[in-house]
Amino acid sequence: MDNAKPETGAFYPRDRNWHPKAFTPDYKTSVLRSPQKALLSLSGTTSEITGPVFGHEILGEKDNDLIHNFAAPGESAIGQRIIVHGRVLDERGIGVAGVLLEFWQANAGGRYRHKKEGYIGALDPNFGGCGRAITDENGYYFFRTVKPGPYPWPNGVNDWRPAHIHFSLFGHGFAQRLITQMYFEGDPLIALCPIVRTISDQAAIDQLVAPLDMANTIPMDARAYKFDMVLRGRRSTMFENRMEGN
């Protein structure tokens, strides 16, 4: 089952208790960047339920290979070689086709390639840290990369981010837009991280932890981690009560 055909129903309301709240003082930067007034509820006009389409033609051959997409010819990024793969589903459990996934991460030593990054960890000349993919008709995606390292960040005096990969998801409607992070099974830093702990429900945190997937690990090459993500579902248009032409 897929939802490759255009749909026009309104999206299910967002469960804002499942997501992190805006004001989470243990993550200090949120204090001055969190709206304090109530949000204005606005259910699904055409402006929210529509969204652009990203075609596979925008993708380059190495877009989903972070081991090689910034490396000099014949070279590759240093680190533990992994495959990250899974499906993007919506809340109805339907695979979402054509989702633009953009991912970014630190290198194996926990260092980002960015003008404003100040960590003493070394840059890898063969690692850029960005990649992208578009889900297939079943919502499936995969990419190759190296496992990112944990790194310290200025928040508390000794806060370390667990190893993580950032994901930006662009589904079928502007209201589905989502950015999240993937963590790795077994990382003791997950439970200590003030950014992870902006999420109050442990079951929601668990939803962001990818298990090691030995069945899909490629012997003598790369281990695999499986990471499924869920976008907002949408109502059937049979339930809509709309004026004709809208």
Partner: peptide
Amino acid sequence: ALLKESPSQTAGPYVHIGC
């Protein structure tokens, strides 16, 4: 049997690298 939307996490200071 509805799934839950993946919880959001901040885009962080290095969102430019990915986007």
